[in-house]
Write a protein that binds this DNA or RNA. Structure first.
Length: 198
DNA sequence: TAGGTGATCTTG
DNA sequence: AAGATCACCTAT
């Protein structure tokens, strides 16, 4: 039985709440019949109307940001620093450009495949800790941009019932260019989890 | 801690 | 058309 998160989870109008709620949920991809996934342990919220750190601020529509304006529940994948794909989840109603960046997962499924994709003989913590690392481990690239999370290539499932996390909040990482909005406590993480940044 | 890397956006 | 920037990672 599928435990995919329902559309209503993603259409929530409060992206900060969604970012917090995603901690403990499980992110999966299935590519060529190979299942990989892990528990989400670090997220950041971005708001396209109020938040200077958001690519879509202030309600900016470009080719890159266009998927952020779709109804919540699709993937927003973008390429940075000439090397890395970062995976985000679009939230809110159609026409509102909000998204949650997934910054780290704890491996759960398909560990061998994830190690192969990451190349190198990488230590456990570096396998899926960090937004570009988890994308590489899960095989995420630009071809997933705009895919529905209710479909079967990339999706999110409810938390495992037997595990609960203490959730911490802090400022977001790498958004100093956003001035005072860099001070917003919109990063969430599972306290004590080793896959969380720094 | 510095350098790699190229898409994306802004300026002119 | 050109230049600056960038929600990062890896190796020194």
């Amino acid at each position: 039985m599928s435990q995919k998160l329902p559309l209503s989870f993603y259409t929530n109008e409060n992206v900060v709440e969604v970012a917090r709620n995603l901690i403990g949920c499980r992110l999966y991809t299935q590519l060529g019949g190979v299942l990989t996934g892990g528990i989400i342990v670090e997220t950041e919220a971005y708001n396209g109307r109020t938040d200077k750190a958001c690519h879509a601020f202030p309600e900016k529509r470009t080719e890159r940001t266009s998927v952020m304006y779709e109804q919540g529940g699709v993937a927003y994948v973008y390429f940075v620093y000439g090397m890395h794909y970062l995976f985000n989840i679009v939230t809110h109603k159609k026409g509102f450009a909000d998204a949650v960046l997934i910054r780290a997962i704890e491996p759960l499924e398909g560990v061998e495949e994830m190690m192969l994709r990451r190349g190198k003989n990488v230590s456990s913590k570096l396998l899926t800790g960090g937004p570009a690392r988890l994308s590489e481990a899960l095989g995420i690239d630009k071809s997933m941009n705009g895919l529905s999370l209710l479909d079967s290539t990339v999706w999110v499932e409810e938390p495992l019932p037997q595990i609960s996390y203490k959730i911490g909040a802090s400022t977001r990482i790498g958004v100093d260019y956003a001035g005072e909005d860099a001070l917003l406590p919109w990063r969430f993480y599972a306290i004590g989890n080793k896959f969380v940044s720094k």
